[in-house]
Amino acid sequence: MTGRLKNKVALITGGASGIGRAAALRFAHEGAKVMIADRNSALSAQTLAELHQITPHAASVSVDVSKTDQVQQMVDDTVSRFGALNILVNAAGVLLLSPPLAEIDERDWDLMMNTNLRGLFLCCKAAIPVIEQSGGGAIVNISSMAGISAYARSLPYAVSKAGVIHFTLGAASQYTSRGIRINCIAPGTVDTPQARGSSGSADALRKIAETHPMGRIGRPEDIADTILFLSSDEAAYISGETIIVDGGSRTLPPNI
């Protein structure tokens, strides 16, 4: 407990599990008031119980970030509960494994684009006016290494995550001068329910760990540390950037 986000109000989408949950807990430890927003209400309740062991200033709201009215409700709830909004972490995202391009189901494309990219747009659109009214703040978007390197297992996911990176750049170009820093994190493989579910087996994750330079895949807490850094005043001169947190796996030369 060191108070690096003392009295800041943070809204974390996808906050019920994985990276979002780790960020919520880290933020609470650093003195933030935390609203977790997720469509998985059961998991939200679990994470909220954990948060309440750290701080009384935590709440949850149910949201599907691809739905305009629900997103507006999420922001309204946050403001009525905590009186302001300083930090938005966009951690909500879905990964559906997809066959090669010609066989991709149009519905799968829409599902990923709607949550990962349209949802990001809606959340920022609703939150930015309130962050401005609160005197400025920070937005942290979660992309993926799939948005930087080629990712054969899901083209729509990869493209949506590349979009998150460029969205960050464009939004920063418009709002940095108005007191809102907007940054992005591209995590490598991280041990989340999403990754476990999408890799198909625990064994697949173990194999990635074996060839990883650090001998392990990332922990949600590893990403939460960088989210905290970018959200805090220590990153006061950082905006528009995408920070890779992959344990150096990108620096391994390809096996040519």
Binding site: T176, A235, Y237, S239, G240, V245, G247
Partner: peptide, 28 residues
């Protein structure tokens, strides 16, 4: 502050990364 973060254990999973700290100048 950025150097401190990268030097500390908080960045324990960060390697090979390039952190631009320019106040968003590149996005202008």
């Amino acid at each position: 502050n950025a150097i401190l973060f990268l030097a500390s254990d908080e960045a324990s999973f960060v390697s090979g990364a390039t952190y631009v700290v320019d106040g968003g100048a590149r996005t202008a």
